[in-house]
């Protein structure tokens, strides 16, 4: 299933709604739906909050389910950002008092998924990842 969503105040909501439709269409288990929803919310939040997307920007979501794997392709038109090489420093190993209050989105995406890859192409960020069903 694919969906192209225009940048706007309801973008995250619309993306999460799309994931719910995907979950129903493929009868995904509640835990898989939970993980996929969380990943998509984090991806869209990053695009919206850090991607400096323009008013005419958009995201694309493409989910395929095959052979016990759900594959997600996520595209945004924000500024170039490679989450594999440049994600915020992981401080989860530090004592609570020394940790930042934020920066928890990418660790969630990375630990909940496999085969995370990034590509900058045609002025767009493209992230692909997999989830075991």
């Amino acid at each position: 299933m694919q969906r192209k969503l225009q940048y706007g105040p309801l973008l995250t909501h619309e993306a999460v709604e799309f994931v719910e439709q995907v979950g129903l269409a493929y009868s995904l288990a509640p835990t898989v739906r939970h993980r996929l929803t969380l990943i998509v919310e984090e991806l869209v939040s990053n695009s919206v909050n850090h991607g400096k997307m323009k008013a005419d920007g958009h995201i694309e979501l493409d989910v395929e389910v095959e052979n016990d794997i759900a594959s997600l392709r996520y595209v945004d038109t924000g500024i170039e950002f490679d989450p594999i090489g440049n994600a915020p420093q992981d401080d989860r190993h530090l004592a609570a008092i020394d940790r930042r209050v934020g920066g928890l989105g990418w660790p969630l995406i990375k630990d909940l998924s496999t085969n995370l890859s990034y590509l900058r192409q045609d002025g767009q960020n493209q992230i692909t990842l997999s989830l075991a069903l």
Binding site: H34, L38, S45, V101, L108
Partner: peptide, 20 residues
């Protein structure tokens, strides 16, 4: 609570730091 994204975790971390 059946769902919490990083914005919720951030709120918990802020509460923790305030409590300290």
């Amino acid at each position: 609570i059946d769902y919490m994204s990083s914005v919720g975790l951030r709120a918990l971390m802020i509460a923790s730091k305030e409590s300290k």
